[in-house]
Design a protein around this nucleic acid. Structure first.
Length: 790
RNA sequence: GCCGAAGUGGCGGAAUUGGCAGACGCAAGGGACUUAAAAUCCCUCGGGAGCAAUCCCGUACCGGUUCGAGUCCGGUCUUCGGCACCA
């Protein structure tokens, strides 16, 4: 007989909410703490899809187990509720984006509750709530006061389609991540945060978080992009101008045949000769119009223009022509020395523009390509005969002694572009006074004004139209507010601290509580945040740690990325492909417990895997089987059953360990094995029945709560029971069957027991395979040795 | 191109430190119950040979180490994810 899961689920949802079962007492320090955090979702209009819950279910299982193991667990949820779709909706409908957002949050909340997550909803965060963004603004002000926030002209990624600037991590293949609009370089005055000042700390900090995926740490290392090399100064011929180049191959200085500046380099205007001026101007303006997409498409076709001027190679006084080319980026010094013999880009450029190639390292075939490997140096004066590393050291030393260059470390990590020309974000609490002074508005929170029209006009941010809000008198002086807002990644760079003390209006969070609850013990969310959110969060935490506000230098102890859930056809789920599964439909048909079991049983959570509606049947059968064993069959008795003893202890051991390791598919497999075995028995000892339902409860909380009440104790909740224990010895076998192999072929099988001596095992083996084989050497694997010794 | 992860039946996937490959589940086939169906229960289920006990092959491909390799080493191919002119 099936059971009415709808009734049961509703009953327990109401009970959990009414009794505040999952509310965390933050001041209870008597128990060890466990902070389990999900990356909070953006409340989109579409609602949750079945991919979201994979991470949420995993974290919920761990949270529920930890509670039963005696931890004080913080398991909160919130919404990253500022963002573009709400703003676009507002423009279209004229409604306030807040109402759209609130409506979506309601849908998300209903969906999350329907899945039985044990969140402490009293600590919910909405990043668009002024009581929250008060402190986002406050952190910005601290950064400003400490000199980490600057307002200055910068070449930025301007997206005409969205009417705003974008950060590097918001651009995919030269187009905006949202909307797919083209992006171009523009010089604009923008707010930036000096994250490069933290490059070294963010890099070395990665060594202190062993429980992060390797791929994520590597991704951040590459994004930070540390390279060690040298800066070398070149004089411009017949002038007082000099420029510096950054190189990781100072050993090839004697092979430099020209230099290239990036088109935006300051010196270009100053040293271009009259004859070349037209060609240079044309090239520079053509580059400015190119989108990132167009620039990267050019890959092998290296364009450039000679600017007419020459510079002097400091090591041999060679006269080198100066070119500009857009393959040189505004990275490092924005200028490179070109060594076509030993750098492939320079090689291609020199071929395209007929520039000379001078070999200074032996090896490779310069007819085909540049040689970048190690080798003996030639044509290099004092470096002749040395290999790459020796030559680098010697030449840098030589340059340093003459003041012509020095050792230098460079990072690819750029400043964090912190302003967006959007309405639906945190206002930046800065006022530009009429007298030219820039001051902070310390009267926080600075509330985002309600407007009649959210459309941007004349390329200015929408807030520019909020005349009343914009014009202020501060310290008796008139000024105008900053009308850009903060990027979406601002709130999520620190929200994990706010969950610890979400209603505090005096400060970001109580230091005593932060000290007890930080860091996050288990953080689950998508791998797409590797170089965006996760790096910004580490940056703000590190900054706040240095200020004594955050008690830890790394905010997330263990990090797990759920794999992508693909559609039934193996493709990415998307509306346009029509393969999206709505969790509401699955819950209506099968119930939340079955959805949870199925999503966890599909495979390892970190792997991408396709949805398969047919496979849900297996999870449904398992849940039904559990129900009928506990409720319909009459086999739970205060009695013993030796047949189940070992399996029970094994199951407790394996499930506990697997939950801890987030290996839910194998935990479920073990529980299925146990339930299948129970089904074959006529007596299900009460002790085992009680223990098993506790194991099941983090995974399938509704049915477990109901069974607990009906079968074990109507007056208590399963959530308050302690986690089952197991007997280590009983969880192990006393007797196992092992194969006897000769030349790696299995010849016989024998049974061996714990405590059996080595000679007896050998005799059995000899006997089993026959006397002729007996004098051959017999290996006993360690596993067996350990087994009989036990 | 660089970095990272992975490749096991018809399918999703198991397999502590190298030690019985394919746990568990889905699908499929057969059977029981039923007037019938659903549900449930039982059996079979990597490929090949054989009446059979049994034997041979098999974890992307090629080679190596080892008594023994899905697992370790070297090379190749493929897929996915990230970065991409970073000097």
């Amino acid at each position: 007989m099936d059971f009415n899961f709808k009734e049961i689920e509703q009953k327990w949802r109401e009970r959990w909410e009414k009794d505040e079962v999952y509310k965390t007492d933050m001041h209870d320090f008597s128990k060890p703490k466990f902070y389990a955090l999900d990356m909070i979702p953006y409340p989109s209009g579409e609602g949750l899809h079945v991919g979201h819950p994979i991470g949420y279910i995993s974290n919920d299982i761990v949270s529920r187990m930890k509670r039963m193991q005696g931890y004080n667990v913080l398991h909160p949820m919130g919404f990253d509720s500022f963002g573009l779709p709400a703003e676009q909706y507002a423009i279209k409908t004229g409604n306030h984006p807040g109402s759209f957002t609130d409506h979506n949050i309601e849908t998300f909340t209903r969906q999350l509750k329907s899945m039985g997550f044990s969140y402490d909803w009293s600590k919910e965060i909405r990043t668009h709530d002024p009581r929250f963004y008060h402190w986002t603004q406050w952190i910005f002000e601290q950064l400003y006061k400490d000199g980490y926030a600057e307002h200055k002209p910068k070449y930025v990624n301007w997206c005409e389609g969205l009417g705003t600037v974008l950060a590097n991590d918001e651009i995919v293949d030269g187009k905006s991540e949202r909307g797919g609009f083209p992006v171009e370089k523009r010089l604009m005055k923008q707010w930036t945060l000096n994250i490069p000042a933290y490059a070294e700390k963010l890099l070395s900090g990665l060594d202190n978080i062993p429980e992060w995926p390797n791929s994520t740490k590597e991704g951040q290392r590459n994004w930070i992009g540390k390279s060690i090399g040298a800066e070398v100064e070149f004089k411009v011929e017949n002038s007082d101008y000099t420029f510096r180049v950054f190189t990781t191959r100072a050993d090839t200085l004697f092979g430099a045949t020209y230099c290239v500046l990036c088109p935006e380099h300051d010196l270009v205007k100053k040293i271009t000769t009259l004859e070349q001026k037209n060609a240079v101007d044309e090239y520079v303006s053509a580059c400015a119009k190119k989108t990132d997409m167009e620039r990267s498409e050019l890959n092998d076709n290296k364009t450039g223009v000679f600017i007419g001027a020459y510079c002097i190679n400091p090591v041999n006084n060679a006269r080198l022509p100066i070119w500009i080319g857009d393959y040189v980026l505004m990275y490092g010094t924005g200028a490179v020395m070109a060594v076509p013999a030993h750098d492939q880009r320079d090689y291609l450029f020199s071929k395209a523009h007929n520039l000379p190639i001078i070999r200074v390292v032996e090896g490779g075939d310069l007819e085909k390509e540049a040689y970048t490997g190690d080798g003996k140096h030639i044509n290099s004066g004092i470096l002749d005969g040395l290999n790459n590393d020796e030559a680098k050291e010697k030449i840098i030393d030589w340059l340093q002694k003459r003041g012509l260059g020095c050792k230098k470390v460079n990072y690819k990590l750029r400043e964090w572009l912190f302003s967006r020309q959007r309405y639906w974000g945190e206002p930046i609490p800065v006022v530009f006074l009429d007298d030219g002074e820039t001051v902070l508005d310390e009267n926080l929170p600075l509330i985002l004004p309600v407007m009649d029209d959210y459309k941007a006009k004349n390329g200015e941010p929408p807030l520019n139209n909020a005349t009343e809000w914009k014009n202020v008198v501060i310290n008796g002086k008139h000024g105008v507010r900053e009308t850009s807002t903060m990027p979406g990644t601002a709130a999520t760079a620190w929200y994990y601290m706010r969950f610890i003390d979400p209603h505090n209006d005096e400060m970001l969070a109580d230091p005593e509580l932060l000290k007890h609850w930080m860091p996050v013990d288990l953080y689950i969310g998508g791998a797409e945040h590797t170089v965006g959110h996760l790096l910004y969060a580490r940056f703000w935490n590190q900054y706040l740690f240095d200020k004594g506000i955050s008690p830890v230098n790394e905010p997330f102890k263990k990090l797990v990325h759920p794999g992508m859930l693909l559609g039934e056809n193996g493709e990415k789920m998307s509306k346009s492909k029509g393969n999206v599964i709505n969790p509401d439909d699955v819950i209506a048909q099968y119930g939340a417990d079955v959805l949870r079991v199925y999503e966890m049983f599909m495979g390892p959570i970190t792997e991408a895997k396709p949805w398969n509606t047919q496979n849900i049947e297996g999870s449904k059968r398992f849940i039904n089987r559990v129900w009928s064993i506990y409720i319909n069959d009459n086999k739970i008795q205060d009695a013993e059953n030796k047949n189940l003893e070992k399996l029970y202890h094994k199951t407790v051991a394996k499930v506990t360990q697997d939950y801890e390791n987030l290996s839910f598919n194998t935990a479920i497999s073990q529980m299925m094995i146990f339930i299948n075995a129970v089904q074959k028995e006529s007596v299900f000892p009460r002790e085992y029945a009680c223990g098993f339902i506790k194991l099941l409860s983090p995974l399938a909380p509704f049915i477990s709560a109901e069974i607990w009440q009906q079968v074990f104790d109507a007056n208590s909740l399963i959530d308050y029971q302690s986690w089952p224990t197991f007997d280590v010895d009983l969880a192990k076998d006393d007797e196992i069957e092992i194969p006897v192999q000769i030349n790696s072929k299995i010849k016989a099988r024998i049974m061996i027991s714990v405590g059996e001596n080595r000679e007896s095992v050998l005799n059995k083996a000899r006997e089993a395979v026959g006397i002729n084989e007996a004098d051959k050497e017999i290996y006993i694997e360690n596993k067996i040795v350990n087994f009989i010794k036990r």
